[in-house]
Amino acid sequence: MKKVLILCLIFLLVFSISACSGGGASNEKIQNDSKSAEDSKKEVNFPEKDLRIIVPFDPGGAVDVTCRIIAELAPDYLNGKKIIVENMPGGGAVVGQTYVSKANPDGYTILAYTSSVVSNPMTKTTTYTHESFQPVAMYCFDPDVLIVSADSKFKTLKDFLDYSKENEVSINTAGIATAHHIAGMILQNKIDAKFNFIHTTGAGMQIQQILGGHVDAGLLTTGEAQAQIKDGTIRALGLMHDERRQDFPDVPTFKENGVDILYGAWRGLAVPKDTPKEVVDILAKAFEGIIADQRFIDKMTTAGYPIIFRGPQEFTEYVDMEAKNFKQVLPLLQEAQK
């Protein structure tokens, strides 16, 4: 008798669950829709359900926070549909990137697309490359900055460049094969210097080592050191950007000092490669709208994330160029890993 009761309850549960779920069924419908849309060039109905941004990092970082700002405004630009931010950390972003590369190319699964998508396939064994994704929109470019402690002997970028040509300098980064490490190696090549790289676990540790005078200099994004730069405890020597930043008018660029180097952390969004073009365009347009939204601009500026917009075409070209740059320093990197 009691067993029958259990069975009944289980059935009740199963029934109630299946009754209140409509998501699974509509999923297939959309696929069919988008296929038939391609054939007959009808209007694509996208999105018809909530979307997901997969952030391949732990919650709380710059990528996560900026994605959540986008997600908050998304309903206004995507027919009222929500974007849910999901963290899928692991393997230095490999886990999340692999997941999206294998996801259904229907535009509902979006990757928070960062420079690690270029470096991971070249430095680790992965099942994807940066070409497994269709870039949709770049929304943030945070140029790298060379910083030293306020009481450092390097007063200007020229001091640093002159000194490092003759002597070994220790420079810390946020980890081996990160964009900052690559930037450092490119710089090292360009000015023919020898850097001793110290690879930390993140910007917090970098700043601590520089403030304490344990390391000569550091490479990180402007956003990560902005508090200390503005407080004057850290001096920013040079920006790896083509022009000075409005919020740091006193910080010169490397270009001004005769070293042509552009580097930094970019943050964007991408979908799996085979996503229909119509869907990519709808998404790109929606993100373009969000990025131009005053609320987005306000939040990004207060948090210190510089905004930039690149659409699917430009973004793809940019990432391809980045991959080329990376390939050039790859032998150096492999040397460093030995």
Partner: peptide, 11 residues
């Protein structure tokens, strides 16, 4: 937290 949805029920 995106708890697994399952193949049949979609929850």
């Amino acid at each position: 937290v995106p708890l697994p949805a399952g193949l049949f029920l979609g929850l």
